[in-house]
Design a protein around this nucleic acid. Structure first.
Lengths: 197, 197
DNA sequence: CGGTAGGGATAGGGTTCT
DNA sequence: TAGAACCCTATCCCTACC
């Protein structure tokens, strides 16, 4: 009985895009109140705008590097305060992501403070952590297969050429006596890995 | 985006509760300044405390039985066709739920054709199915522990008094050579079970 | 300005419908 | 299963009022 699903018209979508251009993302109530858009979007709520913008952004990314990109975004926001208790000496560095996500109102500004750029070899325990991060951030409901994990790491870190082999070795180890479990699919041949932490 | 959302940790929440016990509500700056809590809450503002306390108070009202209830709702849409090849003589019957959620479309109605209400012994294979249903419907991303499984079954079925023991026995069996896997947590003592279908 | 209460907005996870 | 639309609510922000 609720509304039978109100599909977005091209006009509405255009208005939303224009509104974001004018006021920025996250300003949905503002966009809605702007007389320039309010007539077109009068049957939409600020939450609707937010949801639709999310859909647009997601589908726009689906060129090739979909999930890894999305996942990357979630790994950055962490350090609110200094959080300088980062005791892990990573020798892999996160890639800079291409999105200009600066928020003028928030004084904190850029998120990561220390991107060390010298991509050397991956230390074993660091690689394990990265694998776990990949699986966590990919958030695939049935776990992730090797290819997805490779892709994630390639997208988000500088890696030595033998990364894949190293990852495979660590995957075997982590799932034989570590925090990962292998998932065999009934209808597929690939084996997925999922974290049980 | 400066800080896309800083979820409250259990430690922080505990500190807040202790602080309110000690200083009273509305004394947020005081709580923050108390050296007993300031370290745990160092990344929170007085307004954050106020907001979180409001949120805690609200959800405290709605708390406990939620999951089982929500899960129940999902178990109904299942019976598609009649599935009358149900060769197992169930002796457990679904509880009538308080919500008027009878599903008229499913002809079989109640699952068992022979609802002997004298909660007698649970047939082994039926109990297994119920356990799997519980885990499936609870949809807990890291699997469900015994308590959650017990609760689900108690909420949704009439059970004999020895249900918990039976369920524990079956859980052990299903995870040793069946479709379940045990998940040991790093930071908790309970063992969860998850389906590997 | 510093602090709190309350209303309202946003972000992100989840769910439903197709 | 995926994709789009919609829902839920913890967290965050803004303003009025001391």
């Amino acid at each position: 009985m609720g509304a039978p699903k109100q599909k977005w018209t091209p006009e509405e979508e255009a208005a939303l895009k224009a509104g974001v251009l004018k006021h920025g993302t996250g300003k949905w109530r503002t966009i809605l109140s702007d007389p320039q858009f309010s007539s077109v979007l009068k049957s939409r709520s600020n939450v609707d705008l937010k949801d639709k913008w999310r859909n647009i952004s997601v589908t726009a990314l689906w060129g090739s590097r979909k999930k890894a990109k999305l996942a990357l975004r979630r790994t950055l926001p962490a350090p609110k305060q200094d959080d300088n208790n980062n005791t892990t000496p990573l020798s892999i560095v996160p890639l800079a992501n291409g999105e200009g996500r600066t928020n003028p109102t928030s004084p904190g500004g850029s998120v990561t403070g220390s991107p060390q750029t010298h991509a050397s070899k991956i230390s074993i325990t660091s690689l394990d952590r990265i694998i776990l991060e990949a699986i966590t951030n990919l958030k695939e409901p049935r776990g992730s297969d090797r290819t997805s994990i490779f892709m994630y790491i390639e997208e988000n870190f500088k890696t030595p050429p033998n990364m894949k082999r190293n990852v495979s070795v660590r995957l075997k180890h982590l799932s034989s006596n570590g925090p990962l479990v292998k998932i065999k699919h009934k209808y597929r041949f690939s084996t997925n890995f999922t974290s049980v932490g």
